[in-house]
Nucleic acid binder design. Structure first.
Length: 294
DNA sequence: CGGCAGGCGGTTA
DNA sequence: TAACCGCCTGCC
């Protein structure tokens, strides 16, 4: 399939590895060239690359995906099968000033500064709501490689083919309508396990009621508890005050603030008080920092 | 083999 | 309301 190129210039606080490895998305992977990530967002395939902008305005250097161009000014180059500039600017949250967010977090809680520095190129993506709902139902009691495999299987079976892009066939995440054709047995065959019935029921509910708009509506979905609901709020609805508490965050809160690991309520209240409207960003910096150190 | 991985839903006390 | 338990699967 043909692609077009979109370039966003002079971006700060942006690092592909930080963005794609901080637990918010499941459909991006490093490309073999070591300088790009390839993914699918919405119904578009995309290859993303970052160039570091040097002192001379006419010279840029393509850097590897693990390298640092995030506190420096950089350019983001996207090869995409569709979507306009505004779609991709929104997807990558390019109109948000992360320097302000990071300064605010560190001022209110100096103990978080190492984590913020470590994940300083993180962006909270604006992902499709239905995809986020189903993906995080799949994520429960599950590990990342298998979550990615499960979601890829769903896309392959029910999603629209995007044709051969960047070396292999890519598939969009299925629409609600297409997903509603799936049976529990079919999903079991895709190795989704006991989450299969949740996915069928959640798709049905979404078909009937439309997109959930707040935490109470999200957690009312089958297979969605507090942790998954907060992930959907943060990653799907972009409610950046949401603070998902998973097994990693429990460990972090125990280590940093001596919380009992069962005291979820206490951790939530602490996060709301300490990080306020930016709790979701704090969660991402902390999660990425601690998980990478294990 | 048991334990565990970005939990949830149902049951029990 | 808190504590416990079973659950699909894959990997170590």
């Amino acid at each position: 399939m043909r692609t077009q190129t979109i370039v966003f210039e002079n971006i700060k606080d942006f690092n592909l590895a930080h963005i794609f490895e901080c637990g918010q998305c499941f459909r991006w992977n490093p490309s073999k060239d070591g300088k790009s990530y390839i993914g699918v967002a919405g119904s578009y395939a995309v290859k993303a690359r970052v160039d570091k902008v040097q002192d001379r305005l006419d010279f840029t250097e393509v850097i590897g995906i693990g390298e640092e161009a995030d506190t420096e000014v950089c350019n983001l180059t996207l090869e995409v099968t569709g979507g306009g500039e505004s779609f991709w600017a929104d997807y990558f949250d390019l109109n948000t000033n992360y320097s302000i967010i990071k300064d605010s977090l560190i001022n209110n809680e100096p103990q978080i500064s190492d984590a913020v520095e470590y994940g300083r190129g993180i962006r909270i993506l604006n992902q499709d709501k239905f995809e986020t709902l189903i993906s995080f139902i799949v994520s429960q009691n599950n590990n990342i490689p298998r979550i990615k495999k499960c979601i890829e299987s769903i896309c392959r079976k029910y999603g629209e083919s995007l044709g051969d892009v960047f070396g292999e066939e890519r598939f969009a995440f299925p629409s609600v309508e297409r997903m509603s054709t799936a049976s529990v047995q079919e999903l079991m065959d895709l190795k989704l396990g006991y989450r299969s019935k949740y996915i069928v029921a959640a798709t049905e509910k979404y078909m009937n009621e439309g997109c959930p708009n707040n935490y109470e509506e999200v957690i009312a979905y089958p297979g969605v508890g507090p942790k998954v609901a907060n992930c959907i709020m943060l990653f799907g609805l972009h409610s950046v005050e949401a603070f998902p508490i998973d097994t990693w965050v429990k460990q972090i809160m125990k280590d940093m603030y001596s919380f009992d690991e069962n005291n979820i309520k206490g951790m939530s209240e602490f996060a709301a008080r300490k990080f306020g409207a930016y709790a979701g960003y704090a969660q991402q910096y902390l999660f990425y920092y601690y998980r990478d150190r294990k």
